[in-house]
Design a protein around this nucleic acid. Sequence first.
DNA 1: TTTGTAAGTAAATAAACGTTTACTTACTTT
DNA 2: AAAGTAAGTAAACGTTTATTTACTTACAAA
Lengths: 198, 198
Amino acid sequence: MRPKNLEKEQAIRTVALDIIAKEGLENLSMQKLAKAANVSPRTIYIKYENKEDFLVKLFINEVLEVYEQAVLKDFDEHMEFADGVKKIWMNTFQYLKNNRPAFALLQYSRSSPLLNKAYQQQHIQQGQFFAPIHRFIAANIKAGTIKNFHFDVYRAMIFPVLLELVSEYFDYTERPKQIITEKVLQECCATVIKGIMK
Amino acid sequence: MRPKNLEKEQAIRTVALDIIAKEGLENLSMQKLAKAANVSPRTIYIKYENKEDFLVKLFINEVLEVYEQAVLKDFDEHMEFADGVKKIWMNTFQYLKNNRPAFALLQYSRSSPLLNKAYQQQHIQQGQFFAPIHRFIAANIKAGTIKNFHFDVYRAMIFPVLLELVSEYFDYTERPKQIITEKVLQECCATVIKGIMK
DNA sequence: TTTGTAAGTAAATAAACGTTTACTTACTTT
DNA sequence: AAAGTAAGTAAACGTTTATTTACTTACAAA
């Protein structure tokens, strides 16, 4: 049996993310992807059932899972609240600023019904996404460090600010002056923490 | 000369937003739109040059401009900082929760390169988007109420949290218990303000 | 070295795409 | 009442779409 060419599989995924980042999800076609990845259209269909299946698996396996690992790197749910949040922020920023195509697809998961649904299902099936952060928040509520909001509310208060700053970081990379520096990010993080802590 | 049927024009826009919200921007085709709006494809092309032109104008005129007005309703840049931010928050939430299709397209403007570019250009050409808020922030920096961050950083700290809560609000409307209540929103807003103010 | 088999290709499929053509309709102007 | 005209329609245009068919290739096992 002829063995799979893993480089080709990887090329398909990488090129797909690139096209999505540069031209948008709505301009990604299977034929365009095959051509750009130097592969026959049929090759994509060996591993993926159809376009939707491909997009969902690309999002979950190539982006979301890697993203989660990067965010949680060296994070420990028993850290001091402020330290833990800072760790998460800096991890997230570090990963995303070096993975613009991943960030692009992550943004699409907030608009595209297909990807949004995939995210929700993964969240339900896979136990909890970002479970250590979930426990981290719960422990801090119990300890009285922070107010008793629902986890989803805390998620809203911690991540979207940061994702918007990443988005602005990329916008400013095409302009003379970068305003989203590591220093600004740290001060911004401190601001968020100050608001949240009792 | 036969006069334009304004109802048909409106139907096209309304139906388009509906399709985008339900099936996603990537599943909106001109033929599907025409059929759903009970209109000949040609009718769309009377007013719009092509699909991109249609999408950009739909986004700018039907969503972004209306959104800006709703956000700024009864807002006065000379308000106390906390009052001003609360006003903006409640206006935004009130408008978006009753205009899910508009919210859907607004979310796409954070991922789709076409809409993102349209947003940036509008921002540059049209002077400033949300100019009163810009001046509001600037005045509060000058008065020493808040720290001297760039406006874009403040934008990141004020809006994305709220938009995420709106997104969660819609998610929870399909579930037994709504956790994004007006009370939660107000407490959340207070948390953000507490962080930002000196 | 031969053989079996999944990986992979090039070309083709029908359906759907954005857009246009050829025509009709409905209203204003004269 | 007749003429002029842009709005609007139905059907068609060539192209691109997602996916498949028919075939070839490259390797592991025998």
